[in-house]
Simulated assay, not measured.
Amino acid sequence: MKGKDLLALTVGFNIVGGVIAGLLVGYAFDVWLMERVFKIKTFPFGLLFFFFIGIISGFRNAIKDLKKLG
């Protein structure tokens, strides 16, 4: 694979990685708030918030890499 091929491959990894990282951080945040800090049920809110943050950051990084390709 050449340099541009690898850079194109990282675009997909950026999107998938951002989504997975957002889901993991959101789930951990909810569990942390439920069990340790407030002892209240916050389950879907932290997960959804960080899920959308992960989507935004993944696409933002993918756009940066696509600009390098062009």
Rank of each mutant, 00 (worst) to 15 (best):
Phe45Asp: 11
Gly26Thr: 03
Met34Gln: 13
Gly18Trp: 08
Phe29Tyr: 14
Arg60Val: 05
Val25Thr: 12
Phe52Val: 12
Val16Tyr: 04
Leu33Cys: 08
Leu7Lys: 00
Val16Phe: 10
Lys64Glu: 11
Phe52Ser: 06
Ala21Thr: 13
Leu9Ile: 15
Lys2Gly: 04
Gly70Tyr: 10
Ile56Asp: 07
Phe52Arg: 02
Lys39Val: 12
Val37His: 10
Ala21Pro: 05
Gly22Ala: 12
Leu33His: 02
Thr10Gly: 02
Gly70Thr: 09
Thr42Trp: 01
Val31Asn: 06
Asn14Ser: 10
Tyr27Ile: 15
Val25Ala: 07
Phe45Gly: 07
Gly17Asn: 01
Phe51Trp: 04
Gly58Ala: 11
Ile53Gly: 00
Gly18Met: 06
Asp65Val: 10
Gly46Phe: 04
Ile55Ser: 02
Ile63Lys: 04
Arg36Asn: 13
Leu33Arg: 00
Met34Ser: 09
Phe59Gln: 00
Ala28Gln: 10
Lys4Cys: 02
Glu35Asn: 14
Lys4Glu: 12
Leu23Tyr: 12
Asn61Lys: 15
Ala21His: 00
Thr42Phe: 05
Ala28Thr: 03
Ile20Trp: 11
Ile63Ala: 14
Ile15Trp: 11
Val11Gln: 09
Val25Trp: 03
Gly3Lys: 15
Met34Trp: 09
Asn61Trp: 06
Asp30Lys: 00
Lys68Asn: 10
Ile55Pro: 00
Leu24Asp: 05
Val31His: 15
Leu33Tyr: 01
Arg36Pro: 06
Asp65Glu: 15
Met1Ala: 01
Leu6Asn: 14
Gly17Trp: 08
Phe13Ala: 07
Phe52Asn: 14
Phe13Ile: 10
Leu24Lys: 07
Leu33Ala: 06
Ile40Asp: 10
Leu24Asn: 02
Leu48Met: 14
Gly26Ile: 11
Leu33Asp: 07
Arg60Gly: 11
Ile53Trp: 04
Phe38Val: 01
Lys68Val: 03
Val25Ser: 06
Ile56Pro: 01
Leu47Tyr: 05
Trp32Gln: 03
Arg36Met: 14
Met34Arg: 08
Gly54Phe: 00
Asn14Arg: 13
Ile63Trp: 15
Asp30Leu: 00
Pro44Asn: 01
Glu35Arg: 10
Lys64Phe: 09
Ile20Thr: 12
